[in-house]
Amino acid sequence: MELQTFIIDTLSRALAYGTPLLLGTLGEIYCERSGVLNLGVEGMMILGAFAGFVTTYATGNPFLGVLAAAIVGGSASMIHAFFSITIKTNIQVVSGLAITFFGLGLTGVLGRGWEGKPLDASLPIIGSPFLESIPVLGPIFSGQSVLVYISIGLALILWFILFKTSWGISIRSAGEDPEAADALGVNTSLVRYLCVLTGGVLAGIGGAYLSIDYRPSWTQGMTVGMGWIVIALTIFSFWNPLAALIGSYLFGSLFYLSFKLQPYLAPELLMIMPYLTTILALVLLNCSKTFRRRLGVPAALGLPYNREEK
């Protein structure tokens, strides 16, 4: 019985903690699938967290908060899109890092006065006597924020779009072979812009989830490196939204376990796991050529595309 409660607790917290990771990862998957590497996730998340908190605090409406976070995260991502798609600088790495610097800095400066303020309004929680009555699954899923459900739904929808629709074909082609897509009249720049925007919006919402729901308050640097885990998770899930679902909750459970198992196991060692497993996953992925081609890295990831350069 003890063990069952423990597992249910872990899974329930994994869902809660994995949600911002999932949102960020889904966005970064789209971004990278279209061929753009955005290392600014951490910056976009913290900007979203701050915008979401402030808006919710001011209006009392958490949905407006989420909307504001989406807009702010999306705007930040557009800076990166402009640099990497329009200006075509070969320095997507630097531009992504700049967004992270900027986001952490700006929220740190502007957020000074907001620290420690309580948030009264919060996102609705899904829970009903019926849901709770389902054994095992009931206690895991009930009492979770509506964003948890939305993000699960989003993962399914984004997976469907990516693999079962004509948009998905265009997106994946833009990341694999922009030249081929361009030859067939696909506007690769537009596709990439939209995907980077998706990344920014979702990272922003992920941040808002933290500040409005998970820990309804504002603290400087409250994303605590989640943006970097998102980068790792994107690879770990092989750029697949469904796998991101599993990966996010797995990494989410690590957070909970590192706290829960503290007396038995150093939490820092558990926290290394996301990064270590990502490197190991990449090693395994690259051991076999067939395997790499089946799942592989978007071939044009991080490369600007310029038609005249042929």
Binding site: F83, K88, T89, A98, F101, F102, G108
Partner: peptide
């Protein structure tokens, strides 16, 4: 009494403008 995070803001901004100028030099 401003937060020291202002350093990150300026680092980010300098980078933004540098990338922009990088682009302007090449086009």
């Amino acid at each position: 009494g401003l937060p020291s995070q202002i350093v990150n803001v300026s680092t980010g901004l300098i980078l933004f403008f540098l990338i922009l100028s990088e682009g302007m030099m090449r086009y």
